[in-house]
């Protein structure tokens, strides 16, 4: 019998086994809750379609995250450089986070149609705030003594930003990026639910209407795996960038 190295893996295995047993003995009808084996089968049977839609969702997620990265960097630096700008804008950013993205999504579709734009925008809105908070709080964590030292050596803002503030902000920035990475694919899928030409959300809506829940579960697994892979990539980049850790 295979030994599990950690409890979390053992727990996942137990849940999968229980799920399979419950499905096999017919406690829940298979069209409502397909067994893990059915889900894996669906993944293999429909892999071409799932793969094609995955690429579309990933494209939207990356585009949205890319814009969020650029936007949060520009806004973060402006907030750090001009405290009055921060005072004016930051509360607005906080308030924007109280609005659920699921509520904004239909509006975005209404305003921008069924193309890529509303999806990218929703990913942007989801990812922007964690990145901005990470950067701004990271800039604030820079050692005041070192900032004074840089001033005493006649360093300008950009040099201080590059040498001191950005490295100090790296830890919290990457924490924000991890959160954003895990939200990005989900954000794209939520936007796709409301309509579009492709993507995992569109595929999910289609299979849901056809009561093909095995395929729906297959997509859920793909979304989870994509988010996990993105988070892992962020961790790898962080370890490479922050070698001093």
């Amino acid at each position: 019998m295979k030994k599990f190295k950690s409890w979390d893996k053992a727990l996942i295995a137990i849940i999968l086994v229980l799920w399979q047993v419950v499905g096999m003995i017919g406690v829940v009808p298979s069209f409502m809750l397909p067994t893990p084996i059915d889900v894996v089968k669906a993944l293999f049977v429909d892999w071409q379609l799932i793969g094609k839609n995955t690429l579309i969702s990933l494209y939207e997620a990356f585009l949205g995250m890319g814009f969020a990265l650029m936007g949060s960097f520009i806004a973060g630096v402006l907030m750090d450089r001009f405290p009055s700008f921060r005072k004016a804008v930051f509360p607005l950013c906080v308030v924007s986070q109280t609005i659920p993205t699921i509520a904004i999504a239909p509006l975005l579709v209404l305003w921008f149609g069924f193309g890529v734009t509303p999806k990218v925008l929703l990913v942007f809105l989801t990812c922007f705030f964690p990145l901005l908070v990470g950067l701004v709080s990271g800039f604030e964590s820079a050692d005041a003594g070192i900032l004074l030292l840089y001033r005493s050596m006649g360093a300008g803002y950009l040099r201080t930003l590059w040498d001191v503030k950005l490295p100090y902000a790296a830890e919290s920035f990457f924490a924000g990026l991890r959160i954003s990475a895990s939200y990005a694919v989900v954000g794209a899928v939520i936007a796709e639910w409301l309509g579009g030409e492709g993507g995992l959300g569109v595929y999910m809506t289609r299979v849901r209407k056809g009561f093909q829940f095995d395929r729906m579960f297959a997509v859920i697994i793909v979304i989870s795996l994509l988010s996990l892979v993105l988070v892992k990539i962020v961790d790898m980049i962080r370890d490479r960038v922050m070698r001093w850790r």
Partner: peptide, 29 residues
């Protein structure tokens, strides 16, 4: 500022830079 050398109480070496890169800082500036 920048007309006299100023060293404060703590060493204030940047923790993420090697010793030599820390020491080079004023020249790079």
């Amino acid at each position: 500022s920048g007309k006299v050398g100023y060293m404060q109480q703590s060493d204030l070496l940047l923790p993420f830079k090697s010793v030599i890169r820390n020491v080079m800082t004023p020249l790079i500036l």
